[in-house]
C-alpha cells in the first residue's frame, strides 16, 4: 500500500461566503464520489457482461449449443441492447431489486445481505484493534528512538508488511489451533442466521490476521509523525517548562502527529475491504469476501456484480471520510486562509 495521492484538499479562500468551507468541501467530495461510483458501476458491468465469454456461456459452459444459449440469453434479457441492460441492472440496484443468483436460484439480496453484517464486524474489530495497537507501538518506538525496542519493531514491521495475508493466517492456525496449541478453532463458520458476536472465539483468528497485516503500516506512520512532533520547538518548550514526559508525549505531541496518521489508518481500513476476501476464505467465515470467491467459482454474475459494487462503494466513501477526518484533525487547514 502506498501513500501517494493522499493530498489534503486545499480550501479555496473565497470558495463560498455563505456556507462553512468544510461543508462545501464535503459536498464537492461527495458529488465526485457519486460520479466515480457511476463510472465504477459501468466498469463492473462492462467487465462482467460485455467482455468475451458472455454470461450465458459462463452459465452453460463453453460447449453449449447455440439454441440453449439463445434461450438463456432471452431469459436473462441478454439479447437486449447493452445500454438497456445496464440501465435495468443499475436501476434495480437503486430500488433494491438485485435479481436472482445464477448459482442456486435464490435472490442475490438473501445471499449477500446477511454477509454484509458479518464482514462489517470483522472490518470494524480489526480496524479499531489494529489502530490502537499500531498507534501505541508507534508512540513507544518514537519515545525510545533507536533503542532495542525501536529497532526490533522496525525490522518486524518491514518483514510483516511483505507477508501475504494467507501466510499470516496459516501461521496463526498452525500455532493456535493445529500444531502448538489447541485453544482456538481453525475455521470460523458462523451458522446462518446467527450473529458472529454470539461466537467470539470464531472471530479471534480472522481478526488477529487482519490486525497483524495492518499494524505495521500504522506503526511506521505513527512513529515517523511522533518523531517529527517530538523534535518541534513547542514540544521542547513544554519539556523545558517542566511538563512530565508522559504529558509532553500524550498532550503536546500526540495531537499534531495524529493528523498524518489518520490518512494511513484510513488507507488501512480501505485495504481491509480487499483483505477480507482472502482471510474470510481461509477461515470459511461467511462474509462478503468469501461470498465473492464462491460467486466467482460458480460464475454467479449478479452476485459478483453486487458484491464488487458494494466493496467499491465502501472504498470510495471511506476515502472521502478519511480526507474529511484528517482535515478536521489539522486545525490549520480547517479554516479559510486569510
Amino acid at each position: 500500500m502506498t501513500l501517494d495521492g493522499v493530498v489534503a484538499p486545499v480550501v479555496k479562500p473565497h470558495a463560498s461566503s455563505s456556507s462553512h468551507p468544510m461543508l462545501s468541501l464535503v459536498g464537492r467530495r461527495l458529488a465526485l464520489g457519486v460520479v466515480t461510483l457511476v463510472a465504477v458501476s459501468i466498469v463492473i458491468f462492462a467487465a462482467t457482461e460485455v467482455l468475451p465469454g458472455n454470461a450465458a456461456y459462463a452459465v452453460l459452459g463453453q460447449h453449449a449449443t447455440a439454441s440453449r444459449v439463445k434461450a438463456l440469453e432471452a431469459q436473462l434479457h441478454l439479447n437486449r441492447p447493452v445500454v438497456v441492460q445496464y440501465w435495468d441492472w443499475i436501476s434495480g440496484v437503486a430500488k433494491g431489486k438485485l435479481g436472482t443468483s445464477f448459482a442456486n436460484g435464490e435472490t442475490v439480496s438473501s445471499l449477500v445481505v446477511p454477509r454484509i453484517a458479518n464482514s462489517a464486524v470483522l472490518v470494524l474489530l480489526a480496524g479499531v484493534i489494529g489502530t490502537l495497537i499500531g498507534c501505541a507501538l508507534g508512540i513507544l518506538a518514537a519515545v525510545r528512538r533507536d533503542g532495542w525496542f525501536d529497532n526490533a519493531m522496525s525490522v518486524a514491521a518491514l518483514a510483516i508488511t511483505a507477508l501475504p495475508e494467507f501466510v499470516v493466517a496459516i501461521v496463526l492456525v498452525m500455532v493456535f489451533s493445529a500444531l502448538v496449541l489447541h485453544i482456538l478453532p481453525g475455521t470460523s463458520f458462523v451458522p446462518p442466521g446467527q450473529s458472529p458476536w454470539a461466537h467470539p472465539s470464531l472471530l479471534v483468528l480472522p481478526v488477529a490476521t487482519l490486525v497483524i497485516v495492518i499494524v505495521p503500516y500504522i506503526f511506521r506512520m505513527m512513529r515517523a509523525a511522533m518523531i517529527e512532533a517530538l523534535e518541534s520547538d513547542y514540544v521542547e518548550m513544554a519539556t523545558l517548562k517542566g511538563a512530565p514526559r508522559w504529558r509532553v508525549v500524550l498532550v503536546h505531541a500526540l495531537p499534531i502527529s495524529i493528523a498524518p496518521t489518520i490518512q494511513v489508518i484510513g488507507l488501512n481500513i480501505l485495504y481491509l475491504a480487499g483483505g477480507i476476501v482472502v482471510v474470510e476464505y481461509v477461515f470459511a467465515y461467511p462474509g462478503m469476501g468469501a461470498g465473492l470467491v464462491d460467486a466467482v467459482s460458480a460464475r454467479d454474475i449478479p452476485t459478483i456484480q453486487f458484491i464488487t459494487l458494494l466493496l467499491a462503494a465502501f472504498y470510495v466513501f471511506m476515502n472521502i471520510l478519511t480526507d474529511v477526518v484528517a482535515l478536521m484533525a489539522s486545525p490549520r487547514r480547517r479554516l479559510p486562509r486569510s
Binding site: G5, T36, L37, A39, V40, V43, I44, A47, T48, L51, P52, G53, N54, A55, A58, L270, Y271, A273, G274, G275, V277, V278, L292, V293, A295, V296, R299, I301, I304, T308, L311, A312, Y315, V316
Partner: peptide
C-alpha cells in the same frame, strides 16, 4: 488521472477477481 481514480476505487484483489471471473 480519472481512469486511475476509477481503477483505484476497487480493492486490488477484487478488481483482479472480477476480471478473471468471466473468461476463467
Amino acid at each position: 488521472m480519472r481512469i486511475v481514480d476509477i481503477i483505484l476505487a476497487f480493492p486490488a484483489i477484487v478488481f483482479a477477481l472480477m476480471l478473471v471471473s468471466i473468461a476463467g
